[in-house]
């Protein structure tokens, strides 16, 4: 718990320092997304009063998060797809029906609003990229390079597997309060990763 907070401090600082704007629609995507993760982390903390409940330590679970979940040769499109995938998956988790009653609904909603917003932009921009790509491909049909796509999908698969593990865990623990608290911690990690990915859009 403490460790995570320590890790986050530089992120906060970095965040405060970044004021310059790179050029949406999709050119200034970073500008539109820059606050989402940080807000997400703050909201996660506010969601449940007090610290992590100690009685939930027993339920601890390793979801095997690793950097390998993310695209290795991070092209800008890879990064955008990874952000899209993560935001969607986190959104899915908070959109389940059995959220603990102790969590403040308002904060959960805010997270949903932000992630939905983010997904919308990414979807729009990715579709735009796709269109541009199609135009380029039409221009020189001889050079078809679809290899990128398969790599992307494989990377997303790792991320999907990771979120599937989280989903299965919740189900297995019958959406107990402790299970949710564990997942909440894990989501902070996700937001942190998301933030790192977003900063790559600068």
């Amino acid at each position: 718990m403490l460790n995570i907070q320590q890790c986050l401090i530089p992120a906060y600082l970095l965040f405060l320092l970044v004021t310059s704007i790179s050029s949406l629609d999709c050119d200034s995507l970073y500008f539109y997304l820059r606050n989402v993760s940080l807000d997400g982390m703050i909201l996660l903390r506010k969601m449940s009063k007090g610290e992590f409940p100690l009685q939930c330590l027993k339920t601890r679970m390793d979801f095997e998060f690793s950097q390998e979940l993310l695209p290795p040769n991070q092209s800008l499109t890879d990064v955008k797809i990874a952000i899209y995938e993560m935001s969607q998956q986190i959104f899915n988790i908070f959109s389940q029906n059995y959220l603990p009653l102790t969590w403040e609904e308002e904060n959960v909603q805010k997270i949903q609003i932000k992630l939905d917003h983010q997904s919308e932009y990414l979807q729009r921009c990715l579709e735009e990229d796709e269109k541009e790509k199609e135009v380029l491909e039409k221009e020189d049909e001889d050079e078809i390079s679809y290899s990128g796509l398969t790599v992307l999908q494989l990377n997303n698969l790792e991320l999907r597997k990771y979120f599937k593990r989280i989903g299965s865990f919740l189900k297995e623990k019958e959406y107990s309060h402790c299970a949710w608290e564990i997942v909440r911690l894990e989501m902070r990690r996700c937001f942190y990763t998301l933030q790192k990915l977003i900063s790559q859009l600068k």
Partner: peptide, 10 residues
């Protein structure tokens, strides 16, 4: 309406 409700199936 909060926009995200359109994404949720319910």
């Amino acid at each position: 309406l909060l926009g995200f409700y359109k994404r949720i199936l319910s």
